[in-house]
């Protein structure tokens, strides 16, 4: 496979010098994201996210399986991330690169381990049957800040997803098809979002949000903060790179909170818009067999 073309020395210096003069190549502010777009498909649980030129597609699917022996009361929830040659010819099929491993790990920590999805609600018959919810993250185009875009896509797809309705009568489990009963949403507890900071300069004194691919290749360090709109931090990952001062990091988390709030309101708006689009005759409330909490 061909190697990814590295930016030349001139390019690198140009980017760094421009940042030193408080300028970004695309004219954005340092704490400004590229335009974020989110579209849902006709099916439930498909989210297409574009962040500038980065494009991520997340698809959620569910099926009934046997739970793990050591966790008989929990459902199965997996996030699958695979970077194919579509994102860049440097990525090979079936051979994960470091980017891919880190991305999968971060999504795992942010969405799964933070308990965003209530896995106990996926249990159908203890120790015998449970839902297996799977999120597939497909990176269609990679132009930097894959982590934030993927995390947003995963959260959006999961919140948009509906799983088939089930009932248990005298020990007999029935899974209803979409034609019989309207599918029900997942039991969702909170929406975590990733906000990635990139640091530049000799001591990492310049901090950027939403770095593009060119900027990512030049950065000296990066830090990903995952938090929800209530300011509850799920994880902070700073994997190597130059050390950054604690005060600067605190400032970063403060800004990350406002960004998480923005993401949250944006997603809520999009979901409401989509629900309205689907609810054409106003029958959704009647069709739903869901109980209010």
């Amino acid at each position: 496979m061909p190697r990814e073309a590295e930016p030349s020395l001139n390019e690198k210096q140009f980017i760094v010098q421009a940042l030193g003069e408080k300028l970004r190549l695309d004219g954005r502010e340092f704490d400004q994201y590229r335009p974020l777009e989110l579209t849902f498909g006709d099916q439930y649980g498909v989210a297409n996210v574009t962040l500038g030129k980065t494009r991520v597609l997340a698809k959620v699917s569910a099926e009934v399986t046997v739970p793990y022996v050591d966790r008989p009361l929990d459902g199965v929830f997996t996030i699958a991330t695979e970077l194919g040659p579509m994102a860049s010819p440097a990525f090979e099929v079936g051979r994960p690169t470091e980017t891919e491993v880190l991305l999968a790990r971060l999504l795992e920590k942010t969405v799964r381990r933070s308990g965003a999805l209530d896995t106990e609600s996926l249990c159908l018959v203890a120790g015998q049957k449970c839902w297996s919810v799977r999120v597939d993250v497909h990176v269609l185009a990679h132009d930097g800040n894959l982590i934030d875009a993927s995390c947003f896509a995963v959260v959006a797809a999961l919140r948009h997803f509906r799983k088939p309705d089930t009932s248990i009568a005298s020990g007999q489990l029935t899974v209803y098809t979409p034609a019989e009963r309207e599918p029900v949403p997942l039991s969702w507890l909170h929406s975590p979002f990733c906000v990635t900071w990139s640091f530049f300069g000799d001591d990492g004194e310049t901090a950027l949000l939403d770095a593009t691919w060119a900027e990512e290749q030049v950065r000296v360090s990066s830090c990903t903060v995952s938090l929800n709109r209530h300011g509850e931090i799920c994880q902070i990952a700073k994997l190597g790179g130059v050390p950054v001062e604690a005060v600067a990091l605190l400032q970063c988390t403060a800004v990350a909170l406002t960004k998480a709030k923005e993401f949250s309101t944006f997603l809520d708006g999009k979901l409401a818009e989509d629900a309205k689009r689907r609810n054409k005759g106003g029958f959704m409330a009647e069709l739903s067999s869901e109980n209010d909490r």
Partner: peptide, 20 residues
């Protein structure tokens, strides 16, 4: 010559529950 075909959506059958 490398061709990647990513399937995004397939039509649903509302009358059966699909297995993965």
């Amino acid at each position: 010559i490398q061709i990647v075909l990513q399937i995004e959506t397939t039509p649903d059958n509302d009358y059966v529950n699909t297995k993965l």
